[in-house]
Amino acid sequence: MSVRRLHEEQPESFAFSEANLARVEAWIAKFPTGRQASAVISALWIGQEQEGWVTKPMIEEVARLLDMPTIRVLEVATFYTMFHLAPVGKHHVQVCTTTPCWLRGSDEIVKVCKTHISERPGTISEDGLFSWEEVECCGACVNAPVVQIGGDTFEDLTGDKAADIIEALRRGETPKTGSQIGRHSSEPEGGPSTLTKEVQS
């Protein structure tokens, strides 16, 4: 992790789309009057969904909407690494490199990202479709190593499988999410090894 600053090039303006504004207002309504600032994370998250990343005008718009000092919104945006402070590709690949994934070969996946996306994390690929970064635990250690792209996780990866997924996305296909070796959820590889039959009591 490194120092997180706002991106150098910022768009002129930001406005929530009508549907997203309604979602933000629904979040504000969840908190007592005068506590609307509690909706700041949700508002930024919805903004990021809309724009792909958190922009300076977005921070100012959220501050205005929630009637809170701009610096407070900036504090939140810089605190959470889930907020992208720089533009990302259409598919943002988050590679987990925390211990379980690392033990199971996340280095391979990082290597694939370097060759298939861009040499450095946080930069957009030449075709503008991809960007990648290393992240801390995605919460799917049982199926390590894991990659999260958008809202989906791709589990039980190897370098080759990760490359296939990236190339499939590049071709506009929708690769299968979840485990890539055919197991259901986090069941043991090759089928259940315990509780194989029902025992009569």
Binding site: M1, S2, R4, P69, L74, E75, F79
Partner: peptide, 16 residues
């Protein structure tokens, strides 16, 4: 107008 941005070792005190 003052705030602490970033987290952990990277916390910085700054104005907006």
């Amino acid at each position: 107008e003052l705030g602490a941005t970033g987290r952990g070792e990277d916390v910085e005190i700054t104005t907006y």
